[in-house]
Design a binder for these strands. Structure first.
Ligand SMILES: [Mn+2]
Ligand SMILES: [Mn+2]
Ligand SMILES: [Zn+2]
Ligand SMILES: [Zn+2]
Lengths: 143, 143
DNA sequence: GGGTATATTGAAAGTCACTTTCAACTAGCG
DNA sequence: CGCTAGTTGAAAGTGACTTTCAATATACCC
């Protein structure tokens, strides 16, 4: 899974004439080793602890490349920061977001996806992508 | 409908000790007279044609007040701008957004809302609000 | 291995959409 | 009217990117 994404990115990089660098390797490993939905800044601060030399701009540019290569997806939870999560070809999920502690749960629901298609068809729209986020309190925080 | 929202805002303003000003009246009328999903900047530019004196900050602050009073809802379509739309107590709808021409269609779907509740319940979440947006090409643009 | 042509990097400057500050205005009340 | 508290618009401030650019690092060709 993780190795697979690594390979996908390397192939993407090769096809685009991108070079393999120490920074990209570090950022890729770091990104793939967490399942949290990290913002650019969060990943940058985390990286800096072990690799003080890496700059914010490099993290920013590299995450963008990950998204272009298909191994990452950019997400916005309305807190003003851009986040990135792992993305796999042909897979899709939506999110439950706890507005108190920031916990995030991913879910898939075929029935909703189907209803979305029906709605779009009803208005003649050709849907390219969508966003479904449920905001509230997680089980812990609502106690 | 329009008069009703006007009244709701006036009562909200009175309850908060807010004063009635020429600017607020103008912005309120302007906001209520369009059904488009205008950004702060768009409404500001539109207003300036007939009322050159009004400042961006005033439009910004006033739209925020509308949202607080319950007659408006803030929306984000991912283009980096904050938009406001009419909002009525107890009503809710989601959006279809054309990524080419910017057209927006509002829709309601009880079945989806219900499935969302079930998903949330399944994870123990208490949902406060949600966001469902379908992005793609409208009937005209897909031709 | 060295020599080059390209790509990459990090720091700093720039951008954009707000958001706040503040001195000059009003409303609203007595 | 005379005050007092709320408003306004211009300008300055913020925050999260986003771009620029000189210094480096790679990948490829002898
Ligand atoms: Mn979905
Ligand atoms: Mn909805
Ligand atoms: Zn929580
Ligand atoms: Zn369209």
């Amino acid at each position: 899974m993780k190795q697979e994404k690594k390979k996908i990115f390397q192939e993407y990089a090769a096809a685009r004439g991108l070079k393999s660098t120490r920074q990209r390797d570090i950022i890729l490993d770091s990104f793939l080793s967490t399942d949290r939905h990290l913002s650019i800044e969060e990943l940058y601060l985390q990286l800096r602890e072990k690799h003080p030399g890496i700059g914010y701009a490099t993290v920013y540019r590299t995450l963008k490349l990950f998204a272009e290569s298909g191994i990452a997806r950019e997400i916005h939870f309305g807190d003003g920061q851009t986040r990135y999560e792992h993305q796999a070809e042909g897979e899709h999920h939506d999110h439950l977001v706890c507005t108190r502690c920031g916990a995030i749960v991913e879910f898939e629901n075929e029935a909703i996806e189907k209803l979305q298609d029906e709605i779009a068809a009803g208005y003649g729209f050709l849907i390219k992508n969508h966003k479904l986020e449920l905001y509230g309190l997680c089980a812990k925080c609502r106690k």
